[in-house]
Design a protein around this nucleic acid. Structure first.
Lengths: 342, 342
DNA sequence: CCATCTTAGGCGAACGTTCGCTTACCCGCG
DNA sequence: CGCGGGTAAGCGAACGTTCGCCTAAGATGG
C-alpha cells in the first residue's frame, strides 16, 4: 500500500501558471468579476477542472471578513427533538451555502466555557444555540452580547439573543384543555426541570386552562421529573400515591409521557380507561407506544430551519434588535386520551 | 436599541501596537515560541486580555496548512444510534482541540454531491462519515480516495477508508444463539435494507448460529423492513401470516423490534409467552417497551469516540493503510425473551 | 580590550484569496 | 494622424497568522 503524500492543494496560482495568466485573472474568472475574454475564460476553467482546483474558503474568508459558517452549540443529541431541530437548521444552512461548525455541551453544562471561544476562534458569522442547559448559564449572555448574532431555541438570560421556538404556554393550554374537554377534573402534570423557561411556560398554560374551566390549580398535582423516562415514571408513581383519584396526566414531553405510561402499567391502571395521558412534542415513537400517544405536535424541524434562516438573515443584514418567533403547534389525538375503539 | 457595529476583531497587530512591540513578538508570546523577556511577555499578555484578543484560526490554518477541523457527514439525526455516535465523536474531537464541521445528507442520498466539496473547500483535515446511505454511493470512494483521511461508521465501497464499528456478524450470532438457548426452533428475522453491509452481516450471523445448532436456514423466515418501525410492523405481520408457528423473532434493530412488538400485539400474541423478541443496538427506549426488550448492546458512543480518535491519529501521523476496528458487543437480557417474572 | 556567545526582538516572506487601480492594446472617429 | 474610449489583463496591497533568519545589544571569557 502506498504512503499517502501530503499532496498540497492546487491553488489559483497553480491554475494561473498552467493557463499562462496571472493568478488575479484566474480569480476573476472563478468568481465572475471583471472582464475576461471568452477564450481565456474557457481555458482557465478547463485547466481548473483538469487540475481539480478547489477554492480555499479560509483564505477567502480572511480577506472577506466573513466565513459563511455558523456555529451550532448543541446539547445531547440523544434528545430526539434536538435532533430534528438540528436537521432542519443544517439543511437550511446548506441550502444557503453556509457551513455548520458544531460543538457540544454536556448535560451538566460543562463545555460551555469551551464552546463559545472555540467558535469565535474559528470566526463563525453567527451562533445557533440548541442546548437547553445554556439557559442556566448567565455567562453566555455576557460573552455573546453585542458581539455576534445569536439565535437560540431556548430562552437565554440577558438580552440580545433572538429566539425561535413554539408557544409553550399554548402547548400547556391545548393539552390541558383537551383533557378537560374529555371530562377529566383531576388532572395531574409531570413537568421538566423547574428552573427552565419551557417548564414554567407549559405549566402556566396548564394552570390557565384549568382556571378558564373553573377548576382550581393544585400544587399537589404537579411533580417534576428532569425530562427523562425513568424520572417521569417515578414522578408519576409519586403522583398516583398522593392522589389516587387522578384521571388524567399531562406530561410535559412525550418522553416523559412514556415514563408515565410505564408507571400506570405498573399500577395496573388502563390507559385511557383508568387514566388518560397526553404528552407534547410529537416524537416519532408516539405512534408506537401502547396505547398510541395523544400529544401536541411541535414542528422542531421547521423551527430549526426558521432559526437558521433568521440567523443568516441577521448576519447578512447586520441587523439590529433581537426577535422572537413562535411557530404554531397543534393537538394530535391518538388512543391515550380516547376510549378504546374496539 | 443600538445598531450593531461590524466591530472588527482585534488582531495580533492591535495588541502589538498597544504593547509597543512588533506583531511577530506578540505572536511569539501568544504561542510560546522564541525568547522574550519576562517583562514584555507579561505586558503583552496583559494587553491581549485587556483588548479581548481572540486568535484567528483561519489565518493560522492558512500558513500551517492544517485546520484542526474535521468534517462530519451525517445522515438523519432522528436515528438515535447516529446521535450517540456523533456525541462520542464530537466529544473526543473537542477533547483534542479539533473543530467539527457537519453536513447532512438526506435519507434518499441526495446531498452527497454537495457534502464532500463543501468540506473540502473549508479544508478539513479529515472526514468522519456517519451516514448509512453513503454506502450505496460509489462516487464517494472515488472522491475520497487518497485525498483525505476518512473514517466511517459504515462500510464504504472502494478502499482507502478506515472503519470503526462493531462486529455485526457477532451481533446476529449472539442474538440468534440466545433464542436457540431459550428453546426456540422456528426463529424468524426482520432485517433492514438488504443492500447494506450491516444487514448482510447480521443476517449471516443469524444463519450461522442456526446452522451451528443444527437448524436449517429458511428464506421464508426472513423479511426486510427498511429500518423503520412501521415497515417492521408490516414485515412482522407478513411473517406471522406465512408461518404461524414462529416462536421467536430477531429484529435487526431495536427500532424494528418495537415494530415487531406492535405487530404481535395486534395479533394478540403475548411476548414472550407466544413469541419472543430480541433486537439489537440497545437504545434507551429498550428499557421502556412492553415488555422490556432483550437486545445486543452496541456501544455507539464509544464507537464514535474511537472513530474520531483514529481519524485524528491518521491526520497527525499522515498515516498509511486503512484500518478496521470493531468494538465488542454484548447481550442484554430483558423481558421480551424471558418468561414473565411474576 | 577585543572576540565570542547569548538574549531580546524585528524583519520579510509566505499561506490563498479579493479588490481597486493601472497599463497595454485595439478600435473608430474627427 | 492623434485622441478618446472601451476591453483584457496584470499589479500591489490587504486579510491575520507563523516561521526562519537577522541584528543589536549586553554579558562573558581569555
Amino acid at each position: 500500500m502506498t504512503l499517502r503524500r501530503p499532496a498540497r492543494h492546487v491553488s489559483v496560482k497553480d491554475v494561473a501558471a498552467r493557463a499562462g495568466v496571472s493568478f488575479q485573472t484566474t480569480s476573476k474568472v472563478l468568481n465572475g468579476g471583471g472582464s475576461v475574454s471568452e477564450v481565456t475564460r474557457a481555458r482557465i476553467l478547463q485547466v481548473a477542472s483538469d487540475l481539480g482546483y478547489v477554492p480555499n474558503l479560509q483564505a477567502r474568508s480572511l480577506v472577506m471578513q466573513r466565513t459563511r459558517t455558523v456555529g451550532l452549540v448543541t446539547g445531547d443529541l440523544g434528545d430526539h427533538n434536538l435532533g430534528r431541530f438540528i436537521d432542519g437548521a443544517e439543511q437550511e444552512a446548506r441550502r444557503q451555502g453556509y457551513g455548520v461548525l458544531m460543538t457540544g455541551v454536556e448535560p451538566e453544562g460543562s463545555g460551555t466555557e469551551y464552546a463559545l471561544p472555540a467558535l469565535m476562534e474559528r470566526r463563525v458569522d453567527g451562533i445557533l444555540i440548541a442546548a437547553p442547559q445554556m439557559e442556566e448559564d448567565r455567562a453566555v449572555a455576557h460573552v455573546l452580547d453585542r458581539t455576534l448574532p445569536v439565535v437560540s431555541l431556548h430562552h437565554v438570560p440577558g438580552a440580545g439573543v433572538s429566539m425561535v421556538g413554539s408557544d409553550d404556554e399554548m402547548i400547556g393550554h391545548l393539552a390541558t384543555q383537551h383533557l378537560i374537554g374529555k371530562g377529566h377534573r383531576v388532572i395531574a402534570t409531570v413537568i421538566g426541570k423547574p428552573a427552565r423557561e419551557v417548564t414554567q411556560k407549559r405549566l402556566r398554560g396548564y394552570r390557565h386552562a384549568l382556571e378558564d374551566a373553573g377548576l382550581t390549580f393544585d400544587e399537589v398535582l404537579v411533580e417534576a421529573a428532569d425530562g427523562d423516562i425513568g424520572a417521569a415514571r417515578l414522578a408519576t408513581l409519586e403522583l398516583l400515591q398522593r392522589r389516587p383519584l387522578i384521571t388524567a396526566i399531562f406530561a410535559q414531553s412525550d418522553t416523559m409521557a412514556i415514563g408515565a405510561l410505564s408507571a400506570l402499567r405498573e399500577r395496573e391502571m388502563g390507559v385511557p380507561r383508568d387514566c388518560a395521558v397526553i404528552g407534547c412534542d410529537d416524537i416519532d415513537m408516539a405512534v408506537y407506544t401502547v396505547p398510541t400517544l395523544t400529544t401536541i405536535h411541535v414542528p422542531f424541524f421547521e423551527i430549526g430551519a426558521q432559526a437558521m434562516r433568521l440567523l443568516i438573515e441577521t448576519v447578512t443584514t447586520g441587523a439590529l434588535t433581537p426577535r422572537t418567533v413562535l411557530l404554531p403547534v397543534h393537538l394530535v389525538v391518538r388512543e391515550s386520551t380516547q376510549e378504546p375503539t374496539r
